[in-house]
Amino acid sequence: MTVGSGGAGGGPTKDATQPKVLLVDLDDTLYRCPKIPAIVKQRIQEYMVQKLGISEDEVAAKTLNLYLSHGTTLCGLVASGYRIDFDAWHEFVHQGALDYDTLLQPDPSLRDILCSIDLPKYILTNANKVHTERCLARLGLSDCFQGLFYFENVMELAAQRGIDVSHAVLCKPDPRIYSLVAEQLGVRLSEVLFFDDSARNVAAAHGLGAKTVLVGAEKPCPGADLALPTMHALPAAMPQLLDQPGLVHEHHARGHGRGADALVVGVGAGAGPSGSSAIAVSVPAS
């Protein structure tokens, strides 16, 4: 399995290091639904006006500036000195505003693709746990991943590693998040294949040595080894990843896989080096 063999959207990479882990963003990467980011953006601005007292005249520009300078608007607000209840923020912005059953539909073809890749697969998202789990459940992809890295457990992991998040948010594209995740999974970043729709998230991971795929584009950006219009183009672009079709699906069918409630990365659990088998990350969700 040689990732550097090239394919649609980009030429061969210089380093043919074999990936041991797939790290995949959630929103606008695993699925595309333009209504969701539009609703989230509107709710973020409503929160800033209603809860933080920011003027309606300046909220749009402030939202954009904070997003561009800090990675997420939430991160920028916290860095600017606003005290925010994170659970209340996510409830207001995501699960309290999104009708998941209407906006998202099961994606059996993507499920088949993911289940045909004989490598551990993990989600890395700036979103919170509830949003992540609801999206994956609605897409029918919950058991395609061996673990989830989302807002809450990334913040917990950062605190355990000595990063001060008492009045700060750690999120992509901060390079520390990729290093923390790789360390937790027991792999080098050069052994990670990272998928994201954000050019700056991809570039940050690539700068640390990860192999990167920009999703939602026809051509790679600086820092991306490959570009895919959607994740459905993965088999044609990187057929070498699907060299053991059905293995992961069969593993779950035999009853050895865990349900969605256990697909949560336990930041206190040790994770050994990854190979063809899934890394042991088995702390049930609370």
Rank of each mutant, 00 (worst) to 15 (best):
L110W: 07
A217L: 00
R134W: 05
A97K: 09
L26Q: 02
F86K: 03
A127G: 09
T63R: 13
P120K: 02
G257S: 11
H206D: 01
D87L: 09
L23T: 03
Y100L: 01
L208I: 06
A210M: 09
R111W: 04
I123H: 04
I279D: 01
T63S: 08
V215L: 06
A168I: 05
A199E: 12
P222H: 03
A199N: 00
L114M: 08
P120G: 06
Y100K: 05
P239S: 09
S179F: 03
T63E: 13
I279G: 10
Q42N: 14
K219A: 11
I113V: 15
S179L: 14
A127T: 08
F149Y: 11
L180D: 07
R111H: 08
D25C: 15
S190V: 11
P173E: 05
L26R: 02
K211S: 07
P19G: 08
G223F: 05
A137N: 03
E218I: 13
V3W: 13
K172F: 11
H94W: 03
P220T: 09
Q95H: 08
L104Q: 01
E91N: 06
G81R: 09
T17F: 05
Q160K: 14
N65A: 15
V187P: 04
A227S: 14
F92A: 14
D27K: 07
V165G: 03
T132E: 04
V3G: 09
K51M: 15
D107P: 01
V49F: 02
H167C: 04
W89Y: 14
Q45H: 08
A16R: 14
G246Y: 02
H232S: 15
F149S: 04
V165L: 01
V264G: 04
E91H: 11
K121G: 04
C33R: 10
H232I: 13
K129R: 07
G53A: 01
V3I: 12
M155H: 05
G207W: 00
V165P: 03
M231P: 07
I163E: 08
A203L: 03
L180G: 02
V181D: 03
C75K: 10
S166F: 01
A253W: 02
M1F: 12
L119I: 06
R188D: 15
D87Y: 04
E58L: 06
H90Y: 13
A236G: 08
N153M: 14
K172T: 07
Y67Q: 08
A271P: 05
E91M: 08
V165W: 05
L22G: 01
I39T: 12
E218W: 13
Q50V: 06
L114E: 08
P222T: 05
R83V: 11
L242T: 13
D243V: 11
P239I: 10
H232K: 14
F86Q: 14
P37W: 10
D197A: 15
S276Q: 13
L110P: 01
H90F: 06
S276A: 15
G207Q: 11
I39N: 10
V165A: 03
